[in-house]
Design a protein around this nucleic acid. Sequence first.
DNA 1: GCAAAAGTGTTGGAGATACACCCATGA
DNA 2: TCATGGGTGTATCTCCAACACTTTTGC
Lengths: 222, 222
Amino acid sequence: MNNNTYEQHTQAYVSVDCIIFGFDQGKLKMLLGKRTIAPGLGTWALYGGFVEATETLSEAAKRVLTELTGLKDIYMRQVGAYSDIDRDPISRVISIAYYALINAKDYDENLRKAFNLEWVEIDALPPLFSDHGTMVQDALQILRKRITSEPLCFSLLPEKFTLTQFQNVFEAIIGKPVDKRNFRKRAKQSGVLVATGEIDKLTSKRGAMLYKQNPDIEEFRF
Amino acid sequence: MNNNTYEQHTQAYVSVDCIIFGFDQGKLKMLLGKRTIAPGLGTWALYGGFVEATETLSEAAKRVLTELTGLKDIYMRQVGAYSDIDRDPISRVISIAYYALINAKDYDENLRKAFNLEWVEIDALPPLFSDHGTMVQDALQILRKRITSEPLCFSLLPEKFTLTQFQNVFEAIIGKPVDKRNFRKRAKQSGVLVATGEIDKLTSKRGAMLYKQNPDIEEFRF
DNA sequence: GCAAAAGTGTTGGAGATACACCCATGA
DNA sequence: TCATGGGTGTATCTCCAACACTTTTGC
């Protein structure tokens, strides 16, 4: 900080933009809406909101996420700050992107319709408003890097899930298939999950063991 | 973005704070100053600056870095955005932290004195102003994670360096010693550096081969 | 001649990869 | 009975870790 007084400097609007990932039908998807206001009316965009004087960035992101999804305690992390001068043509707005992971099954279809949002597959993304496309690519890169050091997959799944579901989410994030036997071995040896003893009969005739996240992991390693 | 007009929302000052790392005397250090203004007069702090209307965040960070060091083309990356309501007691200021890596030998001592900065070892850091300590810890964590996927060490060294110097920087960042033979094997096999053919006679009687960063690496893997 | 830094190879173990078939059940 | 998804084991290979002595030369 130098000696200039604050008033000599300009202020800016600060916003958060939320990248909401979900897993559905074997695909990693995200919630996008078409802008209903200028600038960028009608183009696909992330949902966001201005940061108010009484809240931090993560509080603002949580507020937006809860408003949009009705869910609390959403897994959410900061991606970064975006500040191109003209990223918003109306005024200087600096935006901080957050990614969030939700279980798509928990998500209320009525809210989705009320906000005019769509689940869009991440490998079929349309062009996005302003720098939102960059934010999304940055978030995806972070997801892929962190998948072995943070329990990302579980936030995209129901509380109890089969090994096959776990593998499907994992593959959707890293973007390539993995060997089933090796994956299951790794899953069991790593200790990141525990068998519930319950059997899921919905997705297969034979039935599959349901697992959940091991709550006693000190440092996640997968 | 919702339908409210921009004017309904409050603006904030936006600043950048720079964490300048250097390597000197076998230790990873950073440049810190004691604040010369309120708030926090006299406490150790990062050097920063307000973001002006005409510049992006990274331009502001570059401006501050150049002002402070006289150097251009500094390796610099964003750490994240910090927004606690009272992180600055005078006014709402949202700050984006950047870390920078410089070769301490390039750094002009006169500038250091002019700005009243000190090189402080990262494992002997004093308490820092506001949330600057958090920024520094976050930056260090990023450095440690990225050391194998980004060419960080080279930015802390002169253009030509010995394998021992390279190993010293590496150890300083990860915070623990590594085996010399394994490290040298890895350095050579990875292809991240090339021998210059020149011999450095300054740091040893026998002389050591000088290497430099391999410019033809497409994806850095170490 | 000795102190100080440079330089050099081998072995063992752990973890990752590749790979194909049987099982249980509902329809 | 057959279609569907669930479940399992072994052999190989690659990468990483451990480990100690010789070389050169300025002083």
